[in-house]
Design a protein around this nucleic acid. Structure first.
Lengths: 297, 297
DNA sequence: AGAGGTTACGGGCAGCGTAAGGATC
DNA sequence: GATCCTTACGCTGCCCGTAACCTCT
């Protein structure tokens, strides 16, 4: 009969994701391999576990029953990996989704820290805007994400990481009249910031609309580096967290505008799907918290 | 890192039995195979799990920790086998220890029943006297035993099965004077019964000693068939449960002696080591109970 | 010398990935 | 036709059992 724990793990993910193809992605292998394992599991148990639908695979009653056991099994395996194995022994690939702001602050330090704690662990870093990362996390195409959160999904675990103020930033030599700068002045100047779907953009938009002002010309851009370059070139005023332009501030190339109004802080969150046994992601979030707290000073 | 559930199962049994060799017997494989798997598990986890002593293997602290997880894992696997797998899918070998009395009553029916319920299951039947079976069970060299019980060990699970009266049986033509036969008469006649270490022998001995009578000549024999033959040949009176000589009774070859005193019933028990997840043995005991209850009529 | 565990070696088989084959919308 | 799963096939690599070796009593 011979039940293989890998077969169970594969079955667990197929059940969880409702798709052979996605399970294959999750487990870093090919569809046929998944197909084989599930088929073999069904033969070994003598039971049909999945109803193959054209779009999704649904569980049979025996399948649901097995899913409970499989989940516990996966949990135990994860516990063993975290509890009794030495960190050096942990390998595999963890898919990390990162907001670009993080890239410009502490991502490098984080990666360094991970590699020293888990030398044999590979990080698959994906940089994207928070809403995309959020989707990918919900669909379990990512194992952990550092983004503007939290994600309000019951299947998601959130941990607060850090909070960065937003500010209006301009080329140091740009003349904007007397400070503090008024909203009216801003509305008459091109603004450079994050893409439309993101929180900073929405916060800015809300601020202007509430003041009854027309929307200024806005250059939204998904590349923070480009935003910084454009600001340096004097193309407009950018709305970004100052923490990512420290060098330019100290060199006097950019300056933070004093204003009479405030933009909400950007709150960054570590988010991860609620996997059984609390996968490696837990440990990674712990490392991220460490890195963030050390970076504060 | 790649933890294999079979590695865990192997480790579990090595820890449980304190010996690579015994684990190999338990799992129907060879010592080197066990050695390989444990070694690989230690490499994969990067942790030393066992202190190889010259006589026994003892657990390290990490080993104890892993043993908990491994036990739960083995339990889950057993649950899956019993809960979601179809009975036909169950295979493997179960080692059954049987008292010879059972052989002469319902063992055949039991084996038949097992093979119809679990067609791919192999029974390894070992016939011996109850004390030997008891030892083998405690040392986990047997998975389940049907014997004179119960076994008073905390690690053992007992289920009452059936109870057979003991009686004095003689060749039908043997002249023993008027009945009921007195103890004195018996003490003057050779007695044929189970070996010295067994319960019936002890019960008989106690009966005679309490009556202040000398021990008669006793032919103790571990083969019930031989006891029956000897009784048929008129060599002496046997102390056996009449249930095993029904044919001879109906044919009038043997007869049960009426006596004024009583011997205690033989109480047969199913006993099995307290394995995690309640192995197949549970189901087998259930079948045995069925067979016994049907056999009563 | 004997028991228990490890190491060495060869054969068999299982599992993977590539690629082609249905089925369903 | 697109998507998703299954089947076919060749190859690599693992795992098992036999046998020799090591170590401790």
């Amino acid at each position: 009969m011979n039940i293989d724990s890998r077969d169970l793990e594969v079955f667990y993910w197929v059940a969880q994701l409702g798709s052979f193809r996605r399970a294959a992605e999750q487990l870093n292998t090919t569809q046929p391999a998944i197909s084989h394992r599930v088929a073999r599991l069904e033969v070994n148990l003598g039971v049909k576990l999945l109803n193959r639908g054209p779009r999704v695979a649904t569980l049979t009653s025996k399948g649901r029953e097995l899913h409970n056991h499989a989940e516990r099994m996966v949990g135990i395996m994860a516990e063993i990996a975290q509890t009794v194995a030495v960190p050096t022994a942990l390998d595999g690939v963890v898919r990390v989704g990162v907001s670009e702001t993080i890239v410009h602050t502490w991502l490098a330090r984080f990666i360094e820290r991970v590699h020293s704690s888990f030398p044999n662990l590979t990080l698959d870093v994906e940089v994207d805007v928070s809403p995309h990362l959020c989707d990918a996390l919900v669909e379990k195409r990512l194992d952990v994400g550092f983004l503007l959160g939290p994600i309000s999904e019951p299947s998601m675990i959130n941990h607060d990481l850090c909070r960065y103020p937003l500010a209006f930033v301009a080329n140091a030599s740009m003349d904007l009249g007397s400070e503090p700068v008024s909203l009216l002045t801003l509305a008459g100047t091109p603004i450079i910031t994050y893409p439309k779907t993101t929180r900073p953009y929405l916060a800015l938009r809300q601020l202007l609309i509430r003041a009854g002002l027309p929307m200024p010309r806005i250059y939204s851009n998904s590349s923070l580096s480009t935003i910084v370059s454009m600001t340096l070139d004097g193309i407009g005023i950018s709305v970004i967290p100052p923490v990512i332009i420290r060098p330019q501030l100290t060199r006097g190339e950019l300056r933070i505008l004093k204003t009479e109004f405030e933009l909400p802080d950007l709150v960054f969150t570590a988010a991860m799907p609620n996997a059984p046994g609390g996968s490696l992601a837990d440990s990674l979030v712990g490392l991220a918290k460490q890195v963030v707290s050390e970076h504060k000073d």
